[in-house]
Structures are given as structure tokens and as C-alpha cells.
Design a binder for these strands. Sequence first.
DNA 1: GTGAAAGCGCTAACAG
DNA 2: CTGTTAGCGCTTTCAC
Lengths: 338, 338
Amino acid sequence: MVGIEDVAREVGMSASTVSRALRDLPLVSQQTKQVVRAAADRLGYVRSAAASGLVTGRAMAISVVVPAVGLWFYSQVIEGVDTVLRQADYDMALVNLGGVGVERERAFKRSLLRHRGDAVLALCVDFSHEEREELRQLGLPVIVVGTPVRGLRFVGIDEVAAGYQATQHLIDLGHRDILHLTGGAEEQQGLSSRVPQGRLTGYEQALRDAGIPPDPGRVLEGRFSMSASRDVVDDLVESGSPLPTAIFAASDEMAFGAMLSLNHHGLSVPDDISVIGIDNHVMADPFGLTTLAQRPFDQGVEGARILLDELAGRPPRKTSLVLPVHLIDRGSTAPVRA
Amino acid sequence: MVGIEDVAREVGMSASTVSRALRDLPLVSQQTKQVVRAAADRLGYVRSAAASGLVTGRAMAISVVVPAVGLWFYSQVIEGVDTVLRQADYDMALVNLGGVGVERERAFKRSLLRHRGDAVLALCVDFSHEEREELRQLGLPVIVVGTPVRGLRFVGIDEVAAGYQATQHLIDLGHRDILHLTGGAEEQQGLSSRVPQGRLTGYEQALRDAGIPPDPGRVLEGRFSMSASRDVVDDLVESGSPLPTAIFAASDEMAFGAMLSLNHHGLSVPDDISVIGIDNHVMADPFGLTTLAQRPFDQGVEGARILLDELAGRPPRKTSLVLPVHLIDRGSTAPVRA
DNA sequence: GTGAAAGCGCTAACAG
DNA sequence: CTGTTAGCGCTTTCAC
């Protein structure tokens, strides 16, 4: 292992100077910096994160806590976070929560409390009271991306407004019998249930504002999953009961499931039934799905920026950041048939 | 911050004893261990990764290098890796490569060379000669998951055999005009091109073995993307030229794109055209796609185990690990029509 | 079984 | 502008 002393010896200077030169601090002559950097490169010197972290008290990394990396939304946020971190030369410690229970607890303590990161960016995680308290004690800046969490700042969209707008789009097209595919059972995975709840609330409000009494029977659980959604729509269609003229899915993946089911049963989208989702998933385009687009990548970018700003000593942002959504019409919705 | 000294003071013992007790080393009485642990919990003590890492020389973390987290395959591998790491109480440093060029270089140096992890698990990354050399110098155990890389151990499937088997399945059903959707242009992203190449090779061999001369015109680039695949199949269908009776897509996502295109043009799968993919993507089930299933989760598990074994001082595995694939028939392939 | 002392590789405060 | 001196929080000899 080549340490800072080796570099210092190579250039005939002290370790402090090398340290300063390598970090591009002022108070060091340009020439020295060049010489030092050249020597460091030549010797293949790399600063030990442990050693510098120990003395500075900064890990130069951010802990990103995810319920599961496999979901599209999360991976997008991570990409956004990564972009910002890379620019700032920060690393990323990924903490996969993996459900509730003992495992979750261990995962939580693992990286977070071990000071693997100087700040925490949590994705749609609903921290328990205890966890929140531990975080507070650690004094790490925390931000939640994707869902409001009581007592913590967040970056995300206005879920209620999104649900409202999507539903309103269908109402504007003349639909009055609108099925809603919701999430549900999120708490069981330690996820926040406020996302599906918000979208559902928006859906109901839009209906009421249009003079349409919400029908609980028109709300089905798609569990944020494509297969589950396909299954519930399958059941509905096969039951022979009257079908809605439109479906508002709380996520694109659920909308895909619905579309597959409808197609499979020979029903045309949007001629027979209109479908709208929320997200603008990569596959929304090939599916031709009309959706209320949000940008998880940007949410990750903003969340990371807020954290880094705070770490850089700039005045911390106290409020949450609500990002806009916009409708992308890809033709899966149409005026209701006469 | 509560340090080891605080715990020591609390129990009236030395820091050394506390350190030993907390790590469950022998040479410490059971009673002491219990007392120490209780005190540590009470005070909310957590070991500083930086400090212990500095002295032991181990980061107690693994660096996972991915080209991009957003792809289904990668996220699955990461989940698998995470499971193993969690059990071993290791953390994960995620290194997103993000294309080629300067950015990639920086990302590479960032965590890897900074000793953020004690070993490196790389996903489908084709390291440059230089990078490989730097890794070697660092002396970190390295393993590649998902693709063979010259000079490094890997965990994955036999790509050629998989391509062969998928194609053979179609041949067995009587198909002779089989289109192949391949990847391509991976090098540009710093990805390995050996995955699509291997599958293509297997495809061609199967054809030849069946006495069917491979037709280069029957190989289209789907770029491992659903939309790109939909587009090329759209073009093919709309060109009016004779259609194949079957499609073998080198990934499920490409197969989805093909299915959407065919459906969109009123062609039935499998009545008009059979489709088979490789992966067993989460959406293969709702799509009803027949596929050659691989288990990226298991690949992650195995890769992580190999690394941890080596770190634990067990004899390192020198050879690559080739995992099996198996056919899952969901009805998207059928005998060719007379 | 347990404690005292030394030091991991680096940075920060203070001299010069 | 550069060097010297301490020490970050922990683990690890080496004593006892």
C-alpha cells in the first residue's frame, strides 16, 4: 500500500503539503500541486477513506436507504442521486431494508448508525418512531424521497393532486364509471402507504367535484404490481359484471397489467376502455400508455443536492420540495363512447 | 458521539475489553460480554467504521460496480448480493459506472481505489486493460457477475448454450425461419458484448445443426430495449416482407417489445408467430412469455459468497461458476403452422 | 481474563 | 507557502 508519506518522500516534502496539494487547497503553490499530483499518480497513491474519514469526521458518502432496489421508481431515483454524488466526489452506501422485522432493524443499524454516510436519503421508507429518534440522535441530515413522512423533509410530487389530475383527465373525456387500481398493504413492507392513499384521495375528490359518488367497489388492489393488476382485472372481466369505461391505475406498472388483461379478453384500449397511469415508466412508451409523468431521477437529484448543500454548510432547506407532474398523452385514453 | 471509551467508563473496564466483548472474541468472560453489550445498547454506542477500518485494514464492505442500476437484471443481482452481505454484516458500496469516458474513470477510482470495499463485485462490466491492472495492483478479490471477462472469475450462465437451447426449442416445434433479436453496441457503454454475442452464436449453431443456414438478415438489433425492439419489429412487419414464424429474443424485455408490436399489428402470439426470450423477467409471467429462465438473484448470492469466502481466508475459488438455466413454457411458442 | 500503550493513515492547528 | 506536532476512535500486541 502506498501512503501519503511515500508520496511526500518522493517529492521531498512533508505529508501535510501533499495532503493539501491533493485536496487542491489554497496556500499551496501551483507548481507544488502539479509535482505532487504527478508523483501521486505515478506511485498509484489513493487516499484511504477510513483514515481521512476518521480525522475529518466525514465519510464523504451518503447512505441511500431503499425498501428494494428492484422497482423502477427506486432505481431511477438512485441514478439521479448518483449523478449528483459523483460530481461532488461522494460515494454511495446502499442500504437495502428488505421488509420488516429483525432483518430490517439490522439493516437499519448497519450502515446508518455506523456512519457509513454523512447523510441519509431514504426512499419511500416510513421510519418507525424509534428509528426516527435514532436518526435524530445521530444528527445526520435526512431527507425522504417519494413520500411525505411525518416530521421529515421530503422531495416528491403532490400525490393527491396527481390522483386528482389523472382522474379529472378521464372525467373531461366524459367518463363517469372509473375504476381505480390502488396499492395497499405497503405498511407490511415498511413502506409508506401515503402514496397510494394520496392518489386514492385525489381520485375520490375529483369524482365528488364532478358530482360522481365514489363507489368503493370500483377500487381494486393492484399492489403496485403488474401481475396482481392483471389478475384483478381478469377477475373483473370474467365476472361478467358491468365494466367501467375507464381505469385509473396508481402506477404505470399496474396500468400495464390492466392493459394486458383487457387485450387478452379482446377489449380494446382505448376504444372499449381508457387507461391512464402515473409515473412515465420506461415501458409506458412502448405500451402506448397515457400517464401522469413524474421524474424520479430529478427527485433523486434534488434530494441529493439538498443533503450536500447542508453538508457543505449552506443554510439547510427546512421545507419539503414538491415537484410538478405533467400529462403525457400516448393515446390510451379516449372520449367515452356514446 | 458515544465512543468505546464511554462504554468502558460505564462498565468500569478498559476499552480493549469492551472492544473484545463487542466483537464476541474468546478470552472474555461470558458475564463481561453481557454487561458490556447491555451498556453499549443503553448508551447507543455504534462502532465507527472509519476507526476500526483504519486499524484492521478492512472496510467491512463490498463494492458493487454496475453499469446502471435501472435494469432489471442488475437490480436482481444486487438484491442477491445484499442478502449475503447482510448476513455477514457487511455493507455495500454502490458504484454506478455511468457510461464510458471521464465520468466512468472517476467513478471507477472513486470507491474502488479508495478502499471503500474489501472486494469488488462487477456486473457485466468489461474492464479495460488499465482498469484490470489497477484492480490487480490493489490486490482486492474481484468477481464478475453476468458475463465472462478475460482474466477474471465470473458467475453466470453459459450464454452460448442458452442461445442454443432457446433456438432449439423453436426448431423442435418445427420452426425454420427464426428471427433473432440481439443486443449490440454494448461496448459503447462499457458493457460486455459477450452476452449478446454468446446468445447469437448459440442461435447460429442450433440453426446449423438443424441444417438451416443462418441468415444475417434475420438478426435484428433490439439493443436490449423494449422500445427499440418494438420499433424494429414494427418496421419489419410494416415492410411487407415475409415474416419469420418465430422470434428468439436475447432478453425478455426485447421479447416484450416484439409481442407488443405483433399484437399491435393484429398478429397473434403464438398462433401467427412464436416468441421466446431469455431471463424470466418479473413481467414475463403477466406477458405470458415463454423464456429460458436464469436467476440473477442467485448469481448475486454466489458471487458475494465467493468474495466473502476469500475475505474470510478460506481457499479462494479460482474457477468460474456456471449456473443452469431452465425453460419456462408460458404458451408464447407453438408448433409452426402447416 | 483484563489493562496499558502503541499506532493504523491521515488532517488540522500552529509555527515559521 | 511549507513543516511539525497531535490526535481522530479503534484494535492489537504485550504485559499482568
